[in-house]
Amino acid sequence: MSTTQAAMEQQQQAAARMPAVENKISMVVFSGDLDKLLASLIIATGAVAMGMKVKLFFTFWGTAALRDPRKTARGKNLMSTMFGFMLPKGAPKVKLSKMNMGGMGSAMMKMLMKKKNVASLEEMLTLAGQLGVEICVCEMSMDLMGFKREEMIDYPNMKVCGVAAFLADAQTSRIQLFI
């Protein structure tokens, strides 16, 4: 049997094992930008209202938004300490992807949001937690950036996971997004 044939057979077997699709949305939250994070959380909380189960997979730059500004982790090496210093320390510190202008743009956006009663990123995270939105944080990203579990926010349903966990969920979801 050729390797292609073997691969095809494996794919067919995998397809036969595939569980049914649920009314669920799986989202990769890759971006660490305020605007994209807000969009992710608006879709996530909206999806709960629509009766869907929601899982957010935070990876790469996105993980920095889950740091708790009040917490510190000990025992980091020089590189991790530097990364920790350079990356935003949690949701209140993330910046807009455009028009940040040294922080002025982001500050203006936050003022506008407050004036127009739009929930802040921190508020959206709290709401998502209350609504039962599950969060998985990419283990590899956390390790790369030197983030430790004890410096992340207290979120009711947060786990550390890898790519297989995301794919297993994406397979059984009606909607998959990468933001």
């Binding site: 608006i42 909380t45 909206g46 709960v48 209202a49 629509m50 009766g51 127009k116 009663n117 739009v118 929930a119 709401l127 609504l131």
Partner: peptide, 12 residues
């Protein structure tokens, strides 16, 4: 006064 996504979250 509540903007998106609050109205649908509230009604649900």
């Amino acid at each position: 006064g509540l903007p998106c996504p609050m109205p649908v979250i509230q009604i649900s």
